[in-house]
Each structure stands twice: as C-alpha cells, then as structure tokens.
Amino acid sequence: MGLLDKQIDSGGVVITTAENVLNWARLSSMWPMGFGLACCAIEMMATMASNYDLDRFGIIPRPSPRQSDVMIVAGTVTFKMAERVKRLYQQMPEPRYVLSMGSCSNSGGPYWQHGYHVVKSVSRIIPVDVYVPGCPPRPEALIGGLMLLQEKIRKEKFGVKHEAV
C-alpha cells in the first residue's frame, strides 16, 4: 500500500483543486474512437494489441463517437470521407480532442502532390491538438503523441474552451 493510500485509510484529507481532479480524471481515461482510415490504422491496432498495450494508459477504443473523448485520425482523409470525419467529430461530446496520426492526415503525406482526392491535412476540417509525424508512425511515436496530449490536458484551465493548436 502506498503512502497516499495509508493516509486516506486513516481518515486523511487530500487538498487539490477541482481543475486538477477533473484534468487528472480526463487524462487518465482518454477513450479514443476506434476507427481507422488507412495503413496508419494498422499501426494503431498494433499499438492497441499485446506488444504495446495501450490499455495501460487507460486508453480503450470505443466503437461509438458518443462515448469517446479522443479522435485518432489514422490514415488518409479523402474528400469523400472528409464529410464523415467532420460529422463524427461533431457527434463527440465535449471535451474532445483530435490526434492526427501520420503524414497523410497531417499534410496529405505521399499523396500531397498528385492526390487529387486527398485532403491535404485534416486540420482543414477539424481542429487538431497533436500531430504525430511518420508514414506510418511507429507505435512508440503514437504513444508519445498520446502522452503529449495528456500533458496538454493536465494544463487545461477550467471553463476555458481548449483551443486548437
């Protein structure tokens, strides 16, 4: 049993701010929406599977946007899909965050020059909090991006709407 547990067991008091508690709760259970767009989604799946095990960060994929806090845009956003991505984002409850995974959703990636059907950065549709570069980013990179997002949430001010980076 840790020191904190002992203190609380013997009727101790922890003083903190509501902001801290809220942020702590939010950053410890960021539930992403489990949807993948392209190759990056396979790396996202690999990150969620046994070797990298995202569950240990409290990150458990949800099948519905209504239950999720984070949207991991993993893959190429095409014009046909863009509308759907936007709608899914709008269906997510606040506070919501977006992590753009991979060059494609960051900037169009390999399809930047000739991809006539590729949106050149998902930030043209929805506000993005963290960009993870790579094609595809390694699972470590994705975890790094998620931890950056946790840092961002930790610093959030209560009542202030978070702004897009």
């Binding site: 392209a38 095409t78 399809y111 000739h114 059907h117």
Partner: peptide, 15 residues
C-alpha cells in the same frame, strides 16, 4: 466504396 480512393493510377502516370 471510394472512401479511400488514393489516386494510384494517377500516380502511375505522373511518377
């Protein structure tokens, strides 16, 4: 289909 159309044939002509 077509939600992930990434213009392969166009790239084939351009590269």
């Amino acid at each position: 289909i077509g939600y992930l159309h990434r213009c392969f044939e166009k790239h084939g002509e351009e590269l």
